[in-house]
Design a protein around this nucleic acid. Structure first.
Length: 155
DNA sequence: GCCAACGTTGGC
DNA sequence: GCCAACGTTGGC
């Protein structure tokens, strides 16, 4: 028995990989996460979970699209690749350190929801929401069903 | 490009 | 186990 569908927010710098890139390739392994908290969230993911696709480090940071989890978690192959900027010398095939999931394109939002606007709804979303919590830089974070609904109502 | 906040590393 | 130094993230 699998738990009910969950929701997540995943950040990407559009210069590296944008929602348009995801639309083009449809499915993409979410490589390069090297933060334990973010990794642990990906380990909890199930196929079909909803994903808010967030653009960071860009002119208007915010939510630009919707994706879904397309695979169970598995070891990030880039951790084994010497010369890759994601290579981790402490990871071995027997003892991988980093997991990822494949992410599949669902749709672009009719209108991006800027971080600035999301902040104005902090009270409704909950102060503990990691996206707007002071100092939080998590690139993969959980979203409750209520937050998912509230955020997409802003579209 | 700046820099605050945070995580990781490594000397001791 | 402490903590300074360093690296990274990501908003602005």
């Amino acid at each position: 028995m699998s738990p009910r569908k969950r929701y997540w927010l995943m950040k990407s710098e559009p210069g590296d990989f944008s929602i348009d890139d995801l639309q083009r390739v449809v499915t993409e392994p979410w490589t390069g996460v090297r933060n334990y908290q973010a990794r642990n969230f990906m380990r909890q993911m199930q196929v079909g979970d909803g994903v808010l696709f967030y653009h960071s480090n860009t002119e208007v940071p915010g939510i630009y699209g919707i994706a879904e989890v397309a695979s169970p978690p598995y070891p990030d192959p880039t951790q084994f690749k010497k010369g890759s900027k994601y290579h981790d010398p402490k990871a071995t095939q027997d003892q991988p350190r980093w997991d990822l999931v494949d992410v599949r394109f669902v749709r672009k939002l009719a209108r991006a929801i800027p971080l600035e606007e999301i902040r104005t709804h902090a009270e409704a979303l909950g102060e503990e929401f990691a996206l707007i919590r002071k100092g939080s830089r998590l690139s993969v974070l959980p979203v409750t069903a209520a937050q998912w609904k509230r955020l997409l109502a802003l579209e």
